[in-house]
């Protein structure tokens, strides 16, 4: 398997706060890799560094051998990286359809875009029903679906998801995660950041455990599920 994304001893600061203390991880093409950890562990910071929304002070995030720090955040969509940020990653005053169109912002192939919109509707039938609705009035779950649909509109090779389960009812979390699996089956590599370790480890092939800016564990998802520390801290199993 070829390595798609690789982080090599990445350090990042918020002012004086040392948020990432040497993160190293890699994601191979076609995988679902999950990054689990509690509040303030540095999960979102890691994603922001990959997206060039933050600059690492040392170390680098490499995509297919290219250093992502050499690009602006706005250039990464064209490089095949799409991100769904934490919470509501939608343009709330635009309709569902307009949001999907925005997702294809850097593309010019009109026919392909229309085709992809239909593809997103097939993936999320709810969005098709609500296509003319202002997205700020959608439910939390629908907004999450829309954010993912919007990200998929750029035809990414790597999809970064930041806590897609946050604030959603369990039944919706199940639906979202099975769609994530479906998206992965169709060929998109996924880096999934989650607090909900139970769900994340069920669909991921490998996982990293992040604590206060450092990776403390990395293993296959199955092994992590059986790990005593993970069970105690993240899965709530005594």
């Amino acid at each position: 398997m070829t390595t798609m994304l690789e982080l090599n001893d990445v350090h990042a600061y918020y002012g004086k706060i040392h948020a990432l203390k040497g993160i190293s991880l890699n994601v191979a093409k076609g995988e679902i890799v999950t990054l689990i950890g509690g509040n303030g562990a540095g999960k979102t910071t890691t994603l922001r560094t990959i997206c060039a929304l933050m600059r690492p002070t040392s170390g680098a995030a490499m995509l297919n051998g290219e250093n992502l720090s050499n690009y602006k955040a706005s250039q990464l969509a064209a490089k095949g990286v799409a991100m769904v940020p934490e919470g509501r990653g939608v343009f709330s005053r635009m309709t569902v359809l307009e949001n999907l169109e925005m997702g294809a912002y850097h593309r010019n192939d009109k026919a392909g875009i229309l085709e992809d919109i239909e593809h997103i509707y097939a993936l999320f039938p709810r969005l098709k029903e609500r296509r003319g609705q202002v997205s700020g009035t959608l439910s939390g779950g629908e907004q999450q679906m829309l954010a993912m649909g919007r990200a998929m509109m750029s035809r990414p090779s790597l999809l970064l998801l930041d806590e897609p389960s946050m604030g959603l009812a369990p039944v919706l979390v199940e639906a979202i995660f099975s769609t994530v699996e479906e998206i992965n089956r169709q060929g998109t590599t996924i880096l999934l950041v989650e607090q909900n370790a139970l769900m994340a480890l069920q669909i991921a092939s490998r996982g990293y455990v992040l604590q206060t800016g450092e990776i403390v564990l990395s293993d296959s998802a199955r092994a992590l599920q059986r790990n005593a520390m993970v069970q105690k801290v993240y899965l709530g199993i005594e």
């Binding site: 929304l53 064209a78 799409a82 991100m83 940020p85 990653g89 343009f91 635009m94 925005m102 912002y105």
Partner: peptide, 21 residues
């Protein structure tokens, strides 16, 4: 107009879809 609207709504997402802020 779309770019402005996107930037007004959410700068991070606008950048993520490829808009130069």
């Amino acid at each position: 107009g779309r770019q402005w609207m996107a930037v007004r709504e959410d700068e991070d997402v606008a950048e993520a879809v490829g808009i130069n802020l």
